[in-house]
Amino acid sequence: MSAIPTTPPVDPVEAGSDPRRGATVDPSANQRARHRRVLGVAGRYVLLILVLFISVGPFLWQISTSLKGPEENIFAFPPTLIPESPTLNNYLAVMDSLPLGTYLLNSAYVSIGAVIGNCLFGAMAGYALARMRFRGREGLFAMMIATLVIPFEVIMISVFLVTRDLGLINTLTGALLPVALTVLSIFIMRQAFVSLHPEIEEAARVDGAGEWQLFWKVAMPSARGSLAVVAIFSFMAAWDDFLWPLIVLRDASKFTLTVGLVFLDGQFSADQRLIAAGTIIAIIPVLALFIALQKQFFRGVGQAAVKG
């Protein structure tokens, strides 16, 4: 919060340097215009801070609840944002009664697996579709386009049956495989490779590079931007996923974080302090990742929109 300046500076581009007005209008009108600008900037900050509270308020309230001790009434009226005697006991208690560390690792396993699968297999398929000529390419591509719009929710019953027949129910591999590759990832990678310059490839080929080397050493590095998009999207989708893990995972020790938290909610519906502590623990790793990679996140989401 300390990053918000108390007296907002006037945007140098907007204020002052406006010869069109300054030249013809008398000084008092000029001053009025400047007043209006300052007010406009102040108004913007008021709105920004308002939205800030809407975005952050729910998190703050959750943190506050998680820090309240058992003797403090969490239903107090009026509610108290600052706990009377802050305690970390709820965090210890929730870690004690639930293997949240295991859930975090399970979620990380599925999410990282999804990132690797989508980036590697998506790029390999996209590369073949973009740079190689072979019989059946058009047909295969058409089949992918046709199934691009089919949401997982429509086929979840049959995905469950296949996973069961493969003996993967209640395994993390079963949680991973259906999200390990999407048609969309193949599409994004194909787009990236289509616009690759053939000369670079030819030069490498003359140097005696094989197909795999061409792909790995020439094509992949030049598609780094698209790879980042695919990585961020598959990570967010897998980390966020709830429906499929809920279907496929049975034992509490196999749960991903999302399923584990809902399980926690059912188990401790009496004590909101523990649920609050659990959700905060769940947010911290992914929030840290986002803050570390914020530029990539923003560029990824923005680019995906342009490409879509």
Binding site: T258, I275, T279, L287
Partner: peptide, 17 residues
């Protein structure tokens, strides 16, 4: 960054909060 932070919290977390 702050406005985007609810996006990275999973939907389950958002619903619990």
């Amino acid at each position: 960054v702050v406005f985007f932070s609810p996006v990275v919290a999973s939907m389950v977390v958002a619903a619990l909060i």
